[in-house]
Design a protein around this nucleic acid. Structure first.
Lengths: 335, 335
DNA sequence: GTCTAAGGTGAGAGCGCTTCCATCGCAGGA
DNA sequence: TCCTGCGATGGAAGCGCTCTCACCTTAGAC
């Protein structure tokens, strides 16, 4: 199957240059094109990819970097959906996807990505405020798109959602329902999502003139951390608990129910992410839909855009979120 | 960061050939080697990957093909763990991993893999008895290792577990406990795992001189199919239900409990896979541990072995399975 | 009939590396 | 002292493609 353009050229009775034009969409007469395509079809001969890459400077391969510990990667549907979205968008453009996970330290991963080369560009998840891998990629000359972003990444292309605004919306939803002592269980320290959602919550509470003293508990995005945070908060007495993600909300729900309290009558509960399971909890969870799959797709699109016209400069995309209201805040029999 | 060997050579005061030897482990005097390495370190210049690939015929990139519908891919931890195992093994050898999922038809995926090229070899999951993608890869000149195998793949390298034997073991475990009417919920039609596990079950029942009429129900590896299969079987009356995977066992468990029956007193229940959740069911599920992560690693090792010595011919690896006995068959208070 | 323009095609110069082969210097044996 | 052999190094020939440039053909305008 691996042949050379010269072989194809000989079999088609044209020059190598013409075969190359047929393959790459150059200007060729219809008759010649058909003849060459027929030969390619018949012989199953593929042009050598390495040579194409060397001569053209493009490999058609995009790197996807998710430097995440395996348990997180595979338990948290966030990454799966993101990967899926990227995979869809890349396959749309017939691009290859090289995957880099968290097997090694960030420094070593960075060095390997750059050393192995062959990439036209790279998409990297930027969950943490501080990340040497992201810094290294941005500093390299490899076109890079972030999923998520740090405030410092103003000069980089990224795709993200407005966590602050989304948390605003959720908080004001809880306020509208008459809750006053609204607590927030934060995400893991040092993550963009965690910090921004906290900011949004604080902003909206301040706007409503309500204090947040004793109402903020640090979580870690895990179910267990949600459960223990809820225990702490229930002891202090709260009207509602807004967790920084769905997993923590699930943990909180367990704690609440184990105390014989009901949701939302005794305590309203809200999450963030709208993962699959959120709709199947009892009661179904009010949360924020992020459209993670879409984020993955969009990241790929931004990268393609840059590759096809490097002059455009960094593109920043903030995708919309959606408040999904379910029975965990408004009650089963609400209007 | 992307420079040329000539630049490095000039800066080190040696020829390009010598720089190449330093990078590729040729014979170079220690003094020269150190000097060149120092320059590389200092300048962060990386040799051009496409040129290396073209000249050497090796890219250092392995393809991983999991042609699975996204929902399956991300709900079923099997694929996650497999991917994780491969990723670990590949990263061990500093190889890149190009991932191909089920975005397109098998035929189109095949054609894209071959067209995009750049791969040193490929690992492909072979779940189905009949699979044009697997056939195509085997027929290509790309070194290929299967995870799972079809009987026809005698000339291919593969890594798998002995499903027949494992099902034997599980069935005989159930027999040893005194069960006689042991039912089997099969996997999806046309899958190697499904057919082989059924074969193992049948074989052991025959060995025990027991009939299986009316005791085999076709499932589809999904929780829902397990639930409905169990309903059917309970109507007919059974001592035990052996499901072809854990997900179906979970479904069956729901059905059993919804009828007010207890496991294992009224019906013993067994699964296959030993996924994370199996140990946390109520009661914990007796099942077969497959060591999926290990399968992934092993597949990569087999491929590397072949690449370093193509003369060895196909390698076939059958990994051991382990019967994991829990309360769903022996009861909570059993000795 | 001549001139121009434009589309189609082929020749050839790289792209940056690996690797074979030739060369060189030097140590040790005769 | 001369020769041999070996490890270290440089030179240069590709690897198979893209892409520029020049050439040729043909159609259309005058």
């Amino acid at each position: 199957m691996a042949g050379t353009l010269d072989e194809l050229a000989a079999m088609s009775g044209v020059s190598r240059a013409t075969v190359s034009r047929v393959i790459n969409g150059g200007s060729v007469s219809p008759a010649t094109r058909d003849r060459v395509l027929a030969v390619i079809e018949r012989t199953n001969l593929r042009p050598n990819a390495a040579a194409r890459t060397l001569a053209s400077g493009r490999s058609g391969v995009i790197g996807v970097v998710m430097h995440v510990a395996p348990p997180d990667l595979f338990c948290d549907p966030y990454f799966s959906q993101l990967l899926h979205g990227m995979s869809d968008a890349l396959s749309e453009r017939a691009a290859g996807m090289m995957l880099w996970l968290g097997n090694r330290s960030k420094e070593e991963t960075l060095s390997r990505i750059l050393w192995l080369g062959l990439l036209d560009g790279v998409i990297v998840t930027a969950d943490n405020l501080d990340d040497p891998l992201v810094d290294g990629l941005l500093a390299s000359e490899l076109p890079t798109v972030l999923v998520g972003h740090r405030r410092a990444d103003r000069s980089a292309s990224y795709v993200d959602v407005d966590h602050v605004h989304a948390a605003d919306v959720m908080t004001s939803h809880l306020l509208d329902l008459g809750n006053r002592r609204i607590a927030h269980v934060t995400g893991r320290r040092g993550t963009v999502a965690g910090e921004d959602r906290l900011t949004g919550y604080r902003r909206e509470m301040a706007r409503a003139g309500l204090p947040t003293d004793g109402l903020v508990v640090e979580g870690a995005f895990s179910r267990a951390s949600g459960a223990s945070a809820a225990a702490e908060l229930l002891d202090r007495g709260v009207d509602a608990i807004f967790c920084s993600n769905d997993a923590m909300a699930e943990g909180a729900l367990q704690t609440i129910r184990s105390r014989g309290l009901t949701v939302p009558e005794d305590v309203a509960l809200a999450g963030f992410d709208d993962l699959e399971f959120a709709a199947h909890l009892d009661p179904p969870l009010t949360t924020i839909r992020q459209g993670v799959h879409r984020q993955g797709e969009e990241a790929a699109h931004v990268l393609f855009e840059f590759l096809s016209d490097p002059g455009v400069g960094p593109r920043r995309v903030l995708l919309p979120t959606e408040l999904v209201v379910r029975a965990s805040t408004v009650g089963a029999g609400a209007p």
